[in-house]
Structures are given as structure tokens and as C-alpha cells.
Amino acid sequence: MMNVQENPLGPVMGIYLCRAADEDIKRMKVASGGAVTALLLYMLEKDLVDGIVTAKRTKGLEGQAVVARTREELLRTAGNKWSIVPFAARIKEKIEEEDLKRVGIVCLPCQAQFFSQMRDFPLLETDFGERIKYIVSLFCMGTFAFEAFLNYLRIRYDVPPSAIEDIRLERDSLTVKHEGGELRLPIKEVYSYLQAGCLVCTDYTGVWSDISAGSLNEERGWTVMITRNPKAENLLRGAKEEGYLEIRDGSHVMGSVMKGAKDKLARAQRNMMTLL
């Protein structure tokens, strides 16, 4: 297994381009092929997990941890991006309240690291790592200090928080969909509204996850998926065989993902020199 320091992508078993085969998911305007939603649906419907812990946007950029146990509940959370990070403690509450024995978690790289470390190394009797079956991490370039960012959108562009429908962060730009239309901001402009902690984060894909997923500009409509262990590999294969996912080889996008990872690593190293 390669060292994280040597390889910013972490351990990689396979890299694929995936999209949902499910008509319901296709009809929803999910970001990039809906493959994550389709994969989660496969886990739920084939009884590989009792529930999926994911996030649902509540208001503005704020999210809330929710548990989806059925197809309907899951589809209601689809397409929502984790713009901020819900509290880990709330996720624990959710898992215990609903007494889930096997969960799939969709999260950001930092959370994937925490959950994976908890699963591998339970330091506390109260840990619930053994309940976490699959960790799916989304590619991440950083999260926003959202109060400050919302205030900026209101003052500079006259877009009130209540009008924001969706925010998507890509490598070099940010798209804000709102009631009055769409706002495309270069990342440089909003850079200072990323949380400082994200500026020193070295992990783009979520190296601690079982599966990492994200989208690339050059493969619109498809989700890049990186499998990190045999368990993840089997999961993808199963989802394909059962007709949930369309999968094709993604070796040709490895370079682009690597570039994203290296960019984030370089940014972190640069910022560590000044911030630490």
C-alpha cells in the first residue's frame, strides 16, 4: 500500500466512471450522474446496510445529519451537497436512536478520516465504529465559513440566503444557483471565505474512505469513483450486476484527479507555512 505522503490519492484499487441506471435518479437533477445516490440505493435495497447517514440541506448552506432507511427517504436527500459539516455527535445520536447496526456514511474527507480511524482504532467504549460498514467520501476542495460567505453574496450580489437553491464547488469556480438565476464566481474571489482549517487540509479525495466519489469538468454526467479495498470493489461490482450502476473504466481521468489532489496538497503546504 502506498504512503499518503508519496501518493496524495491514498490507496487506490480501481478508478471508474459511473452513473445511475435508475430512472428516478436520472430524472432528478443530481450533480454528476447520480452514481453516489444509486450506489447508496443498492446498499439499502439489497439489505447490505440498515440505513444511510447523509446530509440534507436545511436552510441556506446549513446541513443536518439525516438517516435514510428507504428509497423515498434517500431520494429526498439526493443532490444535496455537504457545504458545511454536521456534528459527529449528532450522527452518533442518529445511529443510536434508530438502532442501526450497519450503516453507510456519505461524508467529506475529514469526516471519512475520523470515522475510519474510529472503525479501525476504537479508543473509547462508546465508539460506534463497528456499526460503520461503508464510508463514501466526496471529493472536497474545502467548506465555507458560511455566515461570512452568505453575507458576502448578499452585500456584493444582492442574493439573500433564502434565495439560494444550490451551491457547487468545482476546481476553479463556484456556481451559486438562486431564484433569480445562476452566479458563477471564480474560486479566487471566494477563496478567503473557505474555512481556515480547509486551507491546510491535504486530502482532496478522502484517502481514508472505502470509496471516494466526485465529478470532473471533462466528464460531465459521470461520477468518478475510486475504490480503496476489495470490499469497495465488490460493492461496485454488485451494484453493476444488479443494474443500479453503469460503470466504465476511468484510468484516463486518473491524471485529472491526481492534479486536483496535488493542487490541494500544494495549497495546504503553502498555507501551513504561514498559518502554523
Binding site: F87, A88, K92, L124, Q195
Partner: peptide, 25 residues
């Protein structure tokens, strides 16, 4: 090291990890 330096992202891992409940978000 993390909070006063502004590097905290508010994930809540610390709160969950404290065996004595000494950390509250």
C-alpha cells in the same frame, strides 16, 4: 493548536471522543 489558530472546521469529532464530556460545541 486547532481552535485558537482558527483551523477548526467544526466537525465535532472531539466532542464525541471526550470520555468525560469536557468538550461541548
Amino acid at each position: 493548536d486547532v481552535v485558537l489558530t482558527g483551523l477548526c472546521i467544526g466537525c465535532g469529532a472531539c466532542e464525541l471522543s471526550c470520555p468525560t464530556g469536557a468538550i461541548r460545541l
